[in-house]
Every structure is written in C-alpha cells, then in structure tokens.
Design a binder for these strands. Sequence first.
DNA 1: GCGACAACTCTACCA
DNA 2: ACTGGTAGAGTTGTCGCG
Length: 790
Amino acid sequence: MELLFWPLDISYDVSEGASRIFIWSITKDGHRVLLIDESFHPYFYVLPKASAIDSVFKELESFKKTNPSILSIQKESKFYFGKPVTVVKVTVNSPSDVNKVKDKIKRLPNVSDIFEADIRFYMRYMIDKNVYPCSWHKVTVTKLSLNDKLKVDAVYRIENNPTMIDDTSIPNLRVLSFDVEYYSPKGTPKPTENPIVIISLATNSSEYKQFTADEYDEKEMLHAFSKYILEYDPDIIVGYNSNKLVWPYIVSRAKKLETSIPISRELSPPQTSVYGHISIAGRANIDMFDYAEELYEVKIKTLQNVAEYLGIDGDRKYLLKPPWLYQYWENSEKKNMLKKHSVSSAKIILEIAKRALPFAIQLSNVTGIPLDQVLAAAVGFRVEWYLIRQAFLENELIPNRVDRPYTPYRGALVLKPIKGLHENIAVIDFSSMYPNIMIKYNISPDTYVEPDESLSPDEYFIAPEVGHRFRKSPPGFYKRVLERLIDLRNKIRTQLKNIDVNSPEYILLDNRQKALKIIANACYGYTGWFGARWYIRQCAEATTAFGRKTISEAIKLAKEIGLNVIYGDTDSLFVKYEPEKVDNFISQVKSNIGLDIKIDKIYVTCLFTEAAKRYAGLLPDGRVEVVGFEAVRGDWCELAQEVQFKVIELVLKEKSPQAAVTYLRKVINTLKSHNIPLEKLVIWKTLSKSIDEYEVDAPHVVVARILRAKGFSLEIGDKVGYIITKGASKRLADRAKPYFIVNYDDVDINYYISSQIVPSALRVLSIFDYTEKSIMTQISTRTLDLWFRK
DNA sequence: GCGACAACTCTACCA
DNA sequence: ACTGGTAGAGTTGTCGCG
C-alpha cells in the first residue's frame, strides 16, 4: 500500500545484528506511525594513494574475506573539492561495524584516506534517500504487526524509496510543555540531594495538569508524569532549559529513586544526543532556551524576559523571581504561589513554542537536521548539513573534519564617523554583500587556484591585496549553493506579496525565507571557520578583500557625486540625503561595481561620537534606534541604559542637550535619595569560561566565587548579577556582591554616578562639549545651535 | 609606598 | 564550535620618585 508521511523524528535500532532505520512519522490522515527500513546499510569511502586504485581494491577484496561485516566493495567515481577521484565504497552491515573496520582499512598500504565514515547512520539514510524532516513524502509500505512496546498507531515496513511530494502543509501537532520545580535550600538544586516537588504540564489542546509532592511521593509523581505523557502522546515536548538542566535532572532523580521514565514512543527514557540535546524517540523534544538564545535583544534569558519580549502577557505576573524559590515550598501560604508560578511557566513555554515551532520546522526542513536537534545545532552545523545534502546531490565527497590551527585574517572596512548631530541621513547598504561577492567572483574551495598553478589571467578572478585566484568557470560549489538559496528565497518573497500577512501560509513561507536567509548569510563565516569541513581560509580572506574593495569604490563614487559620507561599516554607507545624488549613486554602483545597493532607511536626525560601531538615529515614524551604545549593551546597569536612552531621545527629538543635562541631574538626585529601585543597579556579566580559568579577578568572577561558596553552581554561559558596594578596597572586584544579598545602604552610590550614569550620558553629551565637571557643577554651556550641524 | 601609565584581560557589541 | 573589527571598563605590572 502507499502511504503519505511527514517525518517527525528519525532513529535506528540494531537487533540480532541487523540495523533498521526508524522514521517516526505522522500520516496524512493523522496517525502516528513508525516506518521501518530494513534494507539500508552504512558505508564509507576509501581513497587510494595516487593511481593505486586497483591495488587498493585488491587489498580490500582480501580484507573482506576475513571481515564478514563487510557486505560489499565497489569502485565509484566522485569529486573531491571539484576534482574527479576514484574511490572504493565499502558497505558494512551495521553502524558499529564502521568503527570496527575503518581504522584497519586506513592502515592498508595503498590507502590514503577514509571519507564519510563519520556521517551518522540516520542522517546517511535521509541524505541518500532524499528524505527531509518536516516534509511530506510518499512511499510503498507493508503493514507489520504492532507490539506493545511501540506507542504508535501502526508500524510499516518501507518497500521502496520514499519520494518527496509537493505539499508544504504542516500536520496538526500535539504539543506538550512542562515545568519542574525543586526543593533546594542550599543554592542550585542537585539531583543527588534535592527532590522534585512540582511538575506542571500544559498542552496545545488546553489541557493543564500539575503533580505535586503534596499529593504524591516523588517516585509516584514521576510515574504520573510519565503516564500522562504516554496518554496524551505529544508529538512535540517543549521545556525551558530542558536540554541542559531539566531532563538530566529528572533522569538522575529517577535513577536515584530506582525507577525509570519510559516516555518515548518506544518506551525508552530520554537520551543524551548530539549538540547537547536530549532525544525522546518518536517525539521531538525541543528546548525553548535554545530558541531564546537567538533573540539577541533579550540580554538575560529568564522566562520572564523572553515572555515580555515576545509579548506574552497574562501568566507572566505569576512568575516568581529566583533565587531561593524553595522558601515558597516551606510556607503553606506561599506554596500556592509556587504552584501558580510553575503552571504559568508551562503555559508561557507553550506560548513561546507557538512562535518558535513554525521557524524550527522550516529550519529543520531547509537544513535537513531533525526537528528536535535543529535549534540546538550551532550556525556552523546548520550550514554544514545544508552543504552535505548539496554535496551528495552533486556527487562530491564530504570532506573530513580535521584539526587545524586557528589562522586569523583581515576582515571588513570600518570608517571613522564624523562626530556630531546630523540631519537627514540616508543609510545605504549592499544587499547580502558577502554571498553576492562569493557568487560574483566564484569564490569556492573547488575553484581556488593554487599559487603554483599557471593559468591565463582571463580565466580567473584575483582578489585584491591578498592575491588569491578563483576560476571564472565552472560555477563553484559555494556559488551553486548560494544561488540556489537566493533563488528559492526570492521566489518565496514574490509569493508572500500576494498572501494575507495573517494567514497560516504567510507565516509558513515567511519563516521559510528567514531560514534560507540565515543559511545564505552564514556561508561566508562558515568558510573561515577552522572547524568547517569545507574550510579554505583563502575563500574567506578573498571574500573580505573583495568586500573592502567594493565598499571603498562605493565611497569613492559617492564622493565624486558630491555626497557627504558620514560613516560606513562593512557594507553600509551613511550619507547626507540628497535624493537626486543618491539615486544617481545607486545606479552608478550597480553599473560600475555590479552589485545591488539600496536605501535601507532615512534618519531624520542621527548622532555619532568619534567611536565606530556606535550611533543613534530618529526614524521618520518617531522611533529612535540605538546602535552599539551602552543603552543596548547587557553589561551596564539598567539605570545607566535608561538614562542614556532618554538622553539620546532628548537630543534627537527635542534637540535639547540642555534638557538632557537637567534630566540627568534629576536622576542623580533621585539615586542619592535611594529612590531608584535596587534592581536597576544590578550589573550582569556572562561567565565565558569556568571560574578557575580566569587570569584576572574581574568583579563578576569574584562574585561567581562567592556564589559558588553559597552552593550555586555556575556554568560557562551563566550570567552573574552584582552590585558595587561601599568598602575599604579600591578594587571594584572586592566590592562587588551578589545582587540579592545587597542592602540599599551598602550600595556605593558614587560608583553608580561616576562610573555608570554619568559616563553613559556623557558618551552622548560630550558631542556638545559637556564634561563630567560641567554636569556635576551645574555650569551651563553654550546653546545647542552652535553645535548643531546643518 | 604611591600614583601614573601601559599592557593586558574581558565582555559585548556591529556588520 | 560562523568571521573579523571595535569600544570600553577593569586589573595588574612597572616605572620613577628621591
């Protein structure tokens, strides 16, 4: 029979020596099924030493005789970095056999290298069969008998190769979110000591459930949780911090209580998987924290902050503030608040999932990475899996991941801005500069011309300054990949113009074009990443060199036309907006340089200090954009950010630095009288390495040590919040204290005035020649128009 | 022993 | 586990003073 299916998760199993691919799917008629392919075997390629293909083949033939796990060997023609090679494909019985034989084969006399032995079995299957997660396929199947270990509606054996069909719809998915609370009087909960006291669940069919230590003992609670999951049978499970914290905790508690939580569709417990992700077979377990990591405007990724950013209201008011939530559990009155907090967390996580899943589904489908892994996978791996798929289609060998030293190279061009307040400024930028440069100059690992290779100059492009050469034809791997990505995206963007912005189809396609954009834009960075399989430093180096040349030529053109260039960074130019000259400039750039440039926005007013990468602008609709300044940096206290933003607003909108000074003085007085909430004085910094590796006693590091002594375990990537207090030491590090133990009377108000608020305000006000002294001593300065650039 | 200063460390941003 | 370019705060080491 024929079946239409949508792969939700993929795994494999080995029993009695036979390996089987499991495609956990949803069918067109809404059944949750397992498709089993028993016909697929892992393989890898053997590259012979120069012109030794026949010797290698013979060596492998005799090797095969003593190694029964090898099913077949055959010669194959492939390409390696664009050059034709003959390799031997070695097919083995099951995934574990790959490792058993590959090292021995590598030591055979005529073997040069082994390829593709590190491609995970289920990825291999999807690549070879052109099966994509989150996409409809049809296949011929035979129904198998269902055993009670498999929690699906039916099991089928795959009888032919699946084919993708033209249907972009997404099936109705059952989504379950969950939150867990612990009882831990001594800092960070430890699974060896601290029990789970609350588990809350919410589903997208509006079912809510809570299990607490009031009604169950912990073991029963885990069983009830487990039972609920099996009964509700979610396709997708979402949590917050679930990959790194919650699932490992639950698993550890279960182990300690000598029980297990068989919640997958094959009744197995959650398993540690790739990219620091936890896998639950047959379902997609997705951590909304991974999604939050991409919301770079949210500086401290608490559920509260993420919900606020995404406009999720309602339940947010019930969220409690850590640390020491355990105290709520100790007090019978407060206990209900903790219960409410937990169920609200589950509801909010579900709301985040509603926004994240359409994107995750598209990203999974574009990259081919399974849905449960795709948000956990770093940008480099998302690009890489996309490239691997394309390489397979083009018969290119997938290069091995090799250890190589980090070699830095020159990057983009950044101009020194013209300091001051400017009016009517156009921001003009090259669209997707790096991808388009790579396409235009055919920059790719397989088009790179080695320095010793002689080639007629009309056959290659040569990068300025660095001199790397790239063949003009045929189109390189990156060019083909990027053109495909850009074409696809353009088609989608054309479709979007005719669709209602609120329709499900719009949301689907919009998320899809975003996914394509992410991959295209990350390709340049990928080429320069020393961990990349397709790393050729010369490609990255040439791309930035062409980039510098491109922007330099654009600046020169702009000046020739008589445009006043205020600032520029990488692919953008800020010029005084004179419509005719700008139009002329844009068309000349297109004809002379051959790359697309367009007006991104117009600032009614904008301001620059002497620093690069920092400016603020007022848009025609009244919005104020702040770029680079303290106001958008997460490592300044909220008060300093707030003050700076207000100062910028007064300068841009009211054009009144004087009003800004008056405002600043008022804030200083309010702070002196302790009338600013303490939380606005907290400074948050990220731990970028483990505490003991720091060479310098930076304030946040010293505070991290204090926290550790109090029982809080801090990991790389955690944020440390501290307040500077009064004290004898000159060193700030000695006076920085965890924010939640500080009393207002101990706060070093002078530090906040002289090292937070005044500097951040002065950053802007110094444009008008205000100094710390002039602000603090009430001396008024000259009027604005003296400093205002017309 | 102390301040001035340079060198260095560290974070977070922009494109 | 995408890149380099940049600003800015804070710590630490060194120099010179006499």
